[in-house]
């Protein structure tokens, strides 16, 4: 049920972002979720992540739940930033946005660390999702990436010795091109 909520929430945020991207000069804002719901959204993500198994091999359902959580995290981060861009006339808006996003990530990041720490294969799976998320934020030139990177890079290096050359190259690419 929580995964269904999470999926629905992701589609709502995606719809809102599509509206913002396609109608940037629209006078009618399409911001269905206030930024102060950040912690509630993080809570929902955590409930889904709690079902992730520590010792046994994850089922396809659990693996897709993990992917779904990462997609929600990416969408929420981009959404917060776009809402801030829309409200650039309000001086404190950027600060509020940074706060909302950092609070969100400070809540979910420890669980990603925990899952990545279970084993090398768990770590690799988390790394693939996380790198894709970071690359996505870089692609949209997210200024929040600079704030988030120091926190999230620790997850990438949990199993530092076993990072594949491909992953190391992708991490380096992100470090080389700050937004």
């Amino acid at each position: 049920e929580c995964v269904a909520h999470l999926r629905l929430l992701s589609w709502i945020i995606l719809g809102s972002l599509n509206h913002m991207a396609m109608c940037p000069s629209s006078d009618v804002p399409c911001h269905p979720l206030p930024l102060d719901t950040s912690l509630q959204i993080a809570d929902l993500a955590l409930v889904v992540l709690e079902s992730y198994p520590e010792h046994t091999k994850a089922s396809v359902y659990q693996m897709s739940s993990l992917a779904q959580v990462f997609i929600l995290c990416q969408l929420w981060t981009i959404y917060c930033e776009q809402v801030a861009v829309f409200n650039t006339s309000h001086g404190d808006m950027y600060r509020t946005t940074c706060l909302a996003v950092m609070e969100f990530w400070m809540k979910v990041a420890p669980t990603f660390i925990q899952i990545a720490s279970y084993s090398k294969s768990h770590g690799e799976m988390v790394n693939l999702h996380l790198l894709s998320l970071l690359e996505g934020l870089q692609e949209v030139n997210s200024s929040l990436l600079v704030q988030l990177y120091p926190m999230l890079v620790t997850i990438l290096y949990i199993h530092e010795g076993s990072l594949s050359a491909g992953l190391q190259h992708r991490i380096q690419e992100i470090q080389n091109c700050p937004p």
Binding site: V3, R7, N18, Q68, L75, G136, E139
Partner: peptide, 23 residues
């Protein structure tokens, strides 16, 4: 906005795949 739309399209594709998996 082009970059944002491209990124959203990719996420939409991934979400679509996950919907198929879950159904």
């Amino acid at each position: 906005n082009k970059a944002l739309l491209k990124c959203l399209q990719r996420l939409q594709y991934k979400m679509g795949q996950l919907e198929v998996q879950s159904s």
